[in-house]
């Protein structure tokens, strides 16, 4: 019986060892440039607007982070993985900026879908752009930060997207070229833990439809 207990303990210890997960050293200083490039791309909404490139960047970062933990680590070889992460992230950022126009300067009254007067300049610029590029269709995508309930934020973002739609239509844009979508707090581009991050997350974008 004593032996059985000993074997049971050994079995459990080995099983626990097999189930152990590695934690990737994503904060390693060697990965700093790649981390920053991925963060910039994410803030340009690359996860939504250039998903394939952003995924390549993130996977390269994870792989490079894993390589750092290897016993026979070769910094020179890992440099190419890190370089890939940086390159893909920069491509993702550039593509996201081309495919998704952030309407910087569009603001709403607190807890409301009413556009503030200072939003007109940005919206008028967007109207001019849409009139120039007559062949494109866009989705008006509105987002909130995570303050408030998920359901409330979703509805608020839908009303805000609709307010921008109404502005465009009353300023001569054909409504059939536009679709409207509120995403609530579901697609943050920065941390909701800081004031600056929440400000980035409260946004309206025009997503060019392929």
């Amino acid at each position: 019986m004593k032996h059985a207990r000993l074997l049971l303990s050994l079995t459990l210890a080995l099983t626990a060892g097999c189930a152990a997960k590695i934690s990737l050293p994503l904060n390693d200083p060697q990965l700093g440039e790649a981390r920053e490039a991925i963060k910039q791309a994410r803030q340009a909404d690359a996860e939504q607007c250039a998903p394939a490139l952003q995924a390549k960047a993130v996977a390269s970062l994870y792989w490079a982070a894993h390589e750092i933990t290897e016993e026979e680590y070769h910094p020179d070889e890992n440099a190419s993985l890190i370089a890939n992460a940086v390159r893909y992230a920069r491509q993702a950022e550039a593509k996201a900026k081309k495919m998704c126009w952030r309407l910087e300067g569009v603001h709403f009254a607190f807890d409301s879908a009413e556009l503030t007067p200072d939003s007109r300049t940005t919206l008028d610029d967007a109207v001019a752009k849409l009139k120039k590029a007559r062949h494109i269709r866009v989705e008006i995508a509105a987002h909130t930060d995570s303050i408030g309930t998920e359901d409330y934020n979703l509805k608020l973002s839908e009303r805000r997207a609709k307010a921008v739609f109404d502005y465009f239509v009353t300023h001569g844009i054909d409504g059939s070229r536009l679709t409207v979508k509120g995403y609530g707090e579901s697609q943050p581009v920065a941390s909701n833990d800081t004031k600056e991050g929440r400000a980035l997350n409260r946004r309206v974008e025009l997503r060019v439809q392929q």
Partner: peptide, 29 residues
Amino acid sequence: DYHAHLARELTTVAEAEKAQHDIRIAKIF
């Protein structure tokens, strides 16, 4: 979508690790 792309990329990493006989890391990826 982004998650699908990332899942496929991580699968490729897992396969590469498996090819290098690092089964434990392949499973983690």
